[in-house]
Design a protein around this nucleic acid. Structure first.
Lengths: 192, 192
DNA sequence: GGGCAACCATACGCTGGAGTATGTAAGTGT
DNA sequence: ACACTTACATACTCCAGCGTATGGTTGCCC
């Protein structure tokens, strides 16, 4: 029954700052990642921050690298175990764009591609996902050139979907409307 | 042989500032639209700016409204005259995403959907384009629900393509590779 | 050819957010 | 119980960028 009520007043580590940064990015984008704002959020002042990180950029970089490691390990690795390519792509579509924090961060990064820090990271992640998609389409029976273009199309559709839904509220699909959209997407993009 | 060399030293109008703003947005995004920077670009100081506009936001709004008017009149209106739906969609795909200033501005706006000024504008433009696509797919023979989902898919692919190419240099397609991609897209998305 | 209005320059104030300097409290080993 | 490291607070400086105040210049019109 100690003073552990709301602000959870323990000391912070660099990891706490990185996770807090990722939450902030997911909610309000990279532009909202300000030192003092995040400090308030964590219940401290920026005096603390500059003990853990040399600069704001340093925090951003560390946080994004952490995100990338999680991304690599968690998302694609699980789906990659599915042997049947149709089912694998279907699972990918469903897993993705479920309004989780991961997709929100990805969308936030897409909107920050002018800042030099995010470009190489997004290049790596995008390249990886493109490779994943291309291989899946090859295994689903498409020729090399078609598989590559289909992967481009799919990946662009994914990116655009995130932009239009997470930031603009364009279609604002309901639960079942979303499922129907995904099914339509699969019928259209995945060869028989 | 007067001093009309490079900075074209005539007096400026509000329209000049709006056009300059759009150029700046197309090049470096909305975040780069700063009063003093734009003033330097136009060869004057901000003392001029605040004669024409009350605030920075006012300029942004005026510039975007101008862009929207142009957008409406120029792009869709011409394509709408094409009767044959396959050809109409093909022309749309080709016209679009050719690295012109218009698409660059559109991409810049997509990345600025957190700012309240751009949201209603993008909602109007996106709704209009979605309606255009949905109608085209209906006329191409799809049922209502399928036409809507196909339009969503197409529009998302368009948006994603812009993001990935104009900001990230991901595929960095060459001239003929781009054409092949468009053809693949048409084969995949447009019903026979 | 004088006057008014449009256009622009210069110089300032103000704010938000990054980064620094320095002191202090809480742990932790010994 | 003392030194030493970790974690944080407070109080600054510095800079970019918006907006304001005020006065000067150019063009037009009569």
């Amino acid at each position: 029954m100690e003073a552990e009520t709301k602000p959870e007043r323990t000391r912070l580590s660099a990891e706490d700052w990185e996770l807090g940064a990722l939450e902030l990015i997911a909610e309000s984008g990279i532009g909202a990642l300000a030192v003092e704002a995040l400090a308030r959020r964590l219940g401290v002042t920026k005096g603390s921050f500059y003990w853990h990180f040399r600069t704001r950029e340093a925090l951003l970089l560390s946080a994004l690298e952490r995100w990338e490691r999680y991304e690599e390990r968690d998302v694609l690795a699980q789906i990659e175990t599915i042997a049947e390519p149709h089912q694998r792509l279907r699972e990918l579509f469903h897993r993705v764009a479920r309004e989780n924090m991961h997709a929100r961060i990805y969308a936030a990064l897409l909107k920050a591609l002018d800042q030099p820090v995010v470009v190489p990271l997004m290049a790596r992640v995008s390249g990886q996902r493109m490779a994943f998609l291309t291989r899946a389409y090859r295994e689903a029976g498409l020729a090399e050139a078609d598989a590559l273009n289909r992967a481009r199309l799919t990946y662009a559709a994914y990116v655009g979907f995130l932009q239009l839904n997470l930031t603009l509220g364009l279609p604002k699909l309901g639960h079942e409307a979303f499922d129907e959209y995904v099914e339509h997407m699969i019928r259209t993009l995945v060869p028989e």
